[in-house]
């Protein structure tokens, strides 16, 4: 255990050194290191893990977005899958019905989700806590039902043959190719989330989370920041949705967007660490891998997941991210105490 933590410590030191050279350097390096992952996975295991890597990237986008509005801004939203669905269906419809390329349909899908994010965010202005949870739950479910009963949105047959993106003659129709797309999207998403959360906006979010009255007293426009958090998370969800829709085999159905998916997302950020900047990423990776490795126990899987969620909320409320933080902080403290005692003697 200590070994794993010390690795984290070393990594964060290296990253800081690189970032001192140029802000973006660690990111470019990480992207470059992750690029050959499909080839590595294919050599070590098999191509199935490339598909899993794709899924993880999409889940990362979803969890990071959810963490922004839920973990950092403290708004209890349980309708995130609805925004995911809107992004997916919009992008799919535009490329299926208008024949526009992915590069047009995808941004429009994101925008549609962002607009919906305003709608989902409006209740947050007036409601808090459980009331907000109920409102967003209702909205999310309504989106799914609308998809299920409207033939244009696929109703219960689903939307088929959603075209894969192309650049010139290069088509993103294999999981290896698509991986490059979702990896880029995920890295951009993570980078943006770090920028936002470490900026004044992020601090405003956290102020709103801690105490809206105190934040307002300090000049934070609570309404604006609440809505902003929702819209940002909606943009992430819309991006994830569009990427999901165009991923081979290009099929979406309304039961991809049920409450079960919402609870899985919740589990991801709770496990990874609500309000921790790495929370969404850690959670997405761990939950997807554990889910995959326990597939043969499908009988007990949901029970395991629900129990994990309950136990983590009770015993480890800061999630894995919180545990790492605590360890690093303890190490720093011990180190600083040793320095003091060394300096004294």
């Amino acid at each position: 255990m200590t070994a794993i933590y010390s690795i984290f410590g070393r990594i964060s030191e290296t990253i800081e050194k690189l970032a001192a050279i140029h802000r973006l350097l660690p990111w470019i390096l990480a992207f470059a290191l992750l690029l050959p992952l499909p080839q590595i996975l294919s050599a070590l295991f098999n191509d199935y893990y490339i598909y899993l890597a794709n899924k993880i990237c999409i889940f990362i986008l979803l969890s990071v977005g959810l963490n922004i509005v839920k973990g950092f801004c403290g708004q209890v939203t349980v309708g995130h899958v609805g925004l995911y669905a809107i992004g997916a269906v919009s992008s799919a419809l535009i490329s299926l019905h208008f024949g526009w390329s992915f590069w047009l349909a995808f941004p429009i899908g994101i925008l549609a989700a962002g607009l919906a994010g305003i709608v989902v965010g409006l209740p947050s202005v007036r409601l808090e806590g459980a009331y907000l949870a109920l409102a967003t739950l209702g909205l999310g479910e309504s989106v799914r039902i609308m998809i299920a009963v409207t033939p244009l949105f696929g109703s219960s047959t689903g939307l088929l043959s959603i075209p894969a993106p192309t650049i010139g003659s290069f088509t993103f129709d294999s999981y290896t190719n698509y991986y490059y797309l979702v990896l880029a999207a995920a890295m951009i998403g993570i980078y943006l989330s770090f920028s936002i959360l470490r900026s004044a906006t992020g601090r405003a979010f956290m102020a709103v989370r801690e105490d809206t009255v105190a934040a307002a007293v300090h000049g934070v426009n609570v309404t604006k920041y609440k809505l902003l958090a929702f819209v940002i998370s909606a943009l992430y969800a819309g991006a994830a949705g569009g990427l999901f829709a165009h991923m081979p085999p290009g099929y979406i159905h309304h039961n991809n967007f049920t409450i079960i998916e919402m609870v899985t997302l919740l589990l991801m950020i709770v496990l990874g660490g609500i309000g921790h900047i790495w929370g969404g990423i850690i959670g997405a990776i761990i939950v997807t891998i554990i889910y995959d490795q326990t597939l043969e126990f499908y009988f007990y899987q949901p029970l395991l997941f629900g129990l994990t969620m309950v136990l983590i909320v009770i015993f480890m409320p800061r999630g894995i991210g919180g545990m790492i933080d605590r360890y690093l902080a303890t190490k720093k403290f011990i180190a600083s105490q040793e320095e003091k005692s060394n300096a004294a003697s």
């Binding site: 191509d47 199935y48 047959t157 689903g158 043959s161 099929y251 039961n255 597939l295």
Partner: peptide, 30 residues
Amino acid sequence: VANAIKLINQQKVHILIGSTCSSVSLPIVD
């Protein structure tokens, strides 16, 4: 879809039997 990809790539099956629900069979065809 995940099951199909796993069976095809990890188990390297010679033949795939699936599935019960039409909404699952449709994407697996691709």
